[in-house]
Amino acid sequence: MKTIYSIALVLFLASCGSSEKPADKKAELEQLKKERTALNGKIEQLEKELGQSKSQADIKEVTATELKETEFRNFVEVQGKVDAEDNVEITPESPGSVTAIYVKVGQNVSRGQVLAQLDDKVLRQNIAQLQTQLELATTIFNRQKNLWDQKIGTEVQYLTEKSRKEGLQKQLSALQSQAAMNKIKSPVSGTVDAMDLKLGQSVAPGSPTGIRIVNASRLKVKALVSENYAARVSQGDDVEVSLPDVPENLHTKISFAAKVIDPISRGFNVEVKLPPSKKYRPNMLAVLKIIDYKNDKALTVPINAIQKSEAGEYVFVAVNGKAKKTDIKTGKVSNSQAEVLSGLKSGDKVITTGFQDLNDGDSVKL
C-alpha cells in the first residue's frame, strides 16, 4: 500500500509543480492514461499478493485420522483372586489324640492316602477279641451245616449258629469302620500346603487339624460381578485375565456364572479356569476384562475428537482442504475410542487435533 501512495504523491507533485501547460492536450491525456494503466497494474499486483498472504494466514494446520474398519471390544472389568478347585483343610472323623504323622509340608499325596493316625488301641483290642469269637462261631456253623446237609440235627440249631456267626461279622465290620475313622485321610490329590498337627495333639470332628491339601494343577479365578451387568455377562463369554504379580495375560472364557444375585453384596459370582502353571498361586490378585460386546467391522474415533451441540454429537472431517462439520451417532466407548454407528464411512479423514477453533468450511492443511 505504501508503494501506491508514493506513486500518487509523485503524480500530484508533478502536476502541481509544473507551471507550464503542455502544448498538446491530447499528448498529455495519452500520457496520463499510460500512467493510469501502469498504476492499475501495480495496484492489482499488490492486491493479489496481499490476498494470497491473507488466505495463507486463514489456513489452519490440523491432524486427521483416516477411518478403517477395525475390531472393537467393550469390557466389563472386575477384580478377583486365584483359587484352587481342590483347596481343603482336613478335619478328623472321630475324636482322639495323634499317635503318628505320615506326611510333611510340600509332599504330594493322593486321594485316600493316610496323613495321620489317631489312638485306636482299645478298638484294636475289641477287634481282635471279635475276630477270635467269629472264628469259633464260623467253625461251629460249618459243622452244624454239614450235619444239617446230612439231615442230622434240627433246623433251629442250624439257623441259630448261622445267626450268631452273621451277627459277629456285622459287629466286626462296624468296629473296623470305626477304626478306619481314626485314620486322617486326604479327600483329594494334591500337595500338603500346611502341616501344623503335632504328636499327642487332641483333635475332634469339625475342628481344623492344621493340615491343608491344595491341588495347584486345578486353579481358577473367582470374581464378584455387580448385578448391573447381570444381563451382559454369562457363561461362555470371552474374557481377558490379567495377573499383575506374574505378570501375564490370558484369553479364555467364563467357565461359570451364577444365576442367583447375592442379597448382601448385590452381585453374582463368575469363575474362569486357569491352565496348569507353577506361576499361579491361590489368593493371587487377578483382573478380569469380560467382553460384553464386540464388533469385528467397526468404525471408531477418539472420544476427544467428538464435540457436542444442542443437535447432538459431531466431528470435523477434512474434505478437499476444507473442514466439514459432520453429525454422528456413537455407540459404546472402550479404551478412549467411541464406536460410530452412523454419520461416517470408511476412508473419511476425521480431524483429531486442531479442531477446537474450526468452523464448517474453514480451510485446513493436514
Rank of each mutant, 00 (worst) to 15 (best):
V98D: 02
I328N: 02
L29I: 13
T160G: 05
N182W: 02
P208Y: 08
Y229I: 00
E49K: 13
Y158F: 13
A180M: 11
S163A: 15
K48F: 12
N74S: 15
K273L: 12
D327G: 09
T326G: 01
K33F: 04
V233F: 08
E313H: 11
N283T: 14
T63Q: 13
Q356Y: 13
Y5V: 10
N40R: 13
D193M: 10
S234P: 01
G210I: 03
Q235A: 09
Q356S: 15
T70E: 13
D119K: 12
K121G: 00
N359F: 07
K60L: 10
K21A: 13
D348P: 01
Y102G: 00
T352N: 06
A286C: 07
K324Y: 02
D193K: 11
E77V: 14
D362S: 06
V105M: 04
E66N: 12
Q131T: 14
E339H: 12
G354V: 10
S173T: 15
S309M: 05
R266F: 04
N74E: 08
L299D: 06
T160W: 03
T154L: 02
K145W: 09
A311Q: 15
V214E: 05
L159E: 09
S163R: 10
L118F: 01
E89L: 06
Y314G: 02
S189M: 06
S6Q: 09
Q178D: 10
E155C: 01
Q169T: 14
E47C: 02
K297F: 07
V105H: 06
Q113K: 08
N40T: 03
K183I: 01
V82R: 08
A194K: 15
T191E: 11
A14P: 00
A174H: 07
L172Y: 07
K365Y: 10
R124C: 01
L9K: 15
Y5H: 09
V103E: 09
Y293N: 11
E240A: 04
Y293M: 04
K365C: 03
K220M: 12
P247Q: 05
D238S: 11
L11Q: 12
V319D: 14
C16L: 13
T252L: 09
V272T: 11
P263N: 12
N269W: 03
A230G: 00
V88H: 02
E85F: 12
K145F: 13
K26I: 14
I303Q: 08
K289H: 11
T138E: 14
F355G: 01
T160V: 14
S336A: 14
L250N: 04
E227K: 10
T70S: 11
D296K: 14
I306V: 14
T3G: 01
V203M: 03
